[in-house]
């Protein structure tokens, strides 16, 4: 026992904890009407973004759907700027024009959150096409829910990616629900969602999306293969949405039971990693206390920054519609 890299695990835990506490705070801010519109929380799914992105280089591309805070933060975006975007402030990542569902951080190669289900999957193939075209050894990672898998755009993208051997990794975050619809009522091959990709000749694997180490280990292999030019890959990460679909949906709506949610909460990705760290990486409760304090400070500072930032000048309404020469 105790042969795992302590610092490494502390860093993974810190990232997941940051996402968790950041989002809990966002929910509070939503209740205070500091945040409006749609707010979709990633709570319960943090291990996927953190594990997958940990296997990437800084210059690889990441793109996701509207449940995007986790991916953006895992990519290393400034929590203050993310929170300011949620507040609709001029200092936000997108100067308040995007909002929760449309975070973009180009310097971090976070290419955006998109709110039309399935609509961003073709974009991922385009990013991958561009890197291949320019002979750059980059990979593109595209996150989406299992609810996007049946969409036509997903299938067209899978076929193109396979046909042209594009360096793209599709990560399906199978949290078992698309709004109130369980996967069994949405995907024909619901027991094996990855078949959708396999049917186009894309290699695919399922992983425990509650185990950040498992996600990262699989991703490290996959990234190597994809970077080496072996074509696209599909990962089905099994997870669970602990909260409602968005703030408009109660955390256990009538489409699922409280017991079901509680059952899945037992495999909270933070708990899973913490157990490993306590038993195999010389970590102690004091370490976790320290991380809580550290992350708590970051989140508090992010909220303060967002709150104190100005709203955009209405004159900026017409800027950035087009590129001006």
């Amino acid at each position: 026992m105790g042969d795992m890299d302590r610092e490494d695990l502390l860093s993974l835990y810190r990232q997941m904890l940051l996402i968790r506490r950041f989002e809990e705070k966002s929910a509070e801010m939503y209740a205070l009407a500091k945040i409006a519109g749609f707010l979709h929380l990633y709570i319960g799914e943090e291990a996927i973004a953190v594990g997958a992105i940990a296997a990437l280089r800084q210059d690889d591309y990441v793109i996701s759907a509207y449940r995007d805070h986790g991916h953006c933060l895992a990519r290393g975006s400034d929590p203050g700027k993310v929170m300011a975007e949620l507040f609709g402030k001029a200092t936000g990542l997108c100067q308040g024009k995007g909002g929760s569902m449309h975070l973009v951080d180009l310097p971090k190669r976070f290419m955006g959150g998109y709110a039309i289900v399935g609509g961003h999957i073709p974009l991922a193939t385009g990013l991958a096409f561009a890197s291949k075209y320019q002979k750059q050894d980059l990979v593109t990672v595209c996150f989406f829910g299992e609810g996007a898998v049946p969409s036509g755009q997903a299938h067209e993208a899978f076929n193109l990616a396979a046909l042209w051997k594009l360096p793209v990794i599709f990560i399906c975050e199978n949290n078992r629900y698309g709004m109130g619809t369980p996967v069994q009522r949405a995907v024909a091959l619901y027991e094996n969602v990855a078949e959708a990709a396999r049917s186009y000749g894309i290699a695919a694997e399922r992983v425990d999306g509650m185990d950040v180490l498992a996600v990262r280990a699989l991703m490290r292999n996959v990234v190597d293969q994809v970077r080496a030019g072996q074509g696209p890959y599909f990962i089905e990460a099994m997870t669970y949405r602990f909260m409602g679909h968005s703030m408009a949906d109660p955390s256990h709506g009538h489409y699922r039971t409280k017991d079901e949610v509680e059952e899945h909460r037992k495999r909270d990705p933070l708990v899973v990693l913490k157990e490993t760290m306590l038993s195999q990486a010389h970590c102690s409760e004091a370490d976790f206390k320290e991380l809580e304090r550290e992350v708590g400070d970051v989140v508090t500072a992010a909220v303060k920054f967002a709150d104190e930032s100005p709203f955009p000048d209405p004159a900026s309404l017409h800027t950035d519609v087009m590129v001006e020469d």
Binding site: E85, G88, L317
Partner: peptide, 9 residues
């Protein structure tokens, strides 16, 4: 313009 998120916009 595309409808912006921020309230005043």
């Amino acid at each position: 313009v595309p409808i912006p998120y921020s309230r005043p916009l």
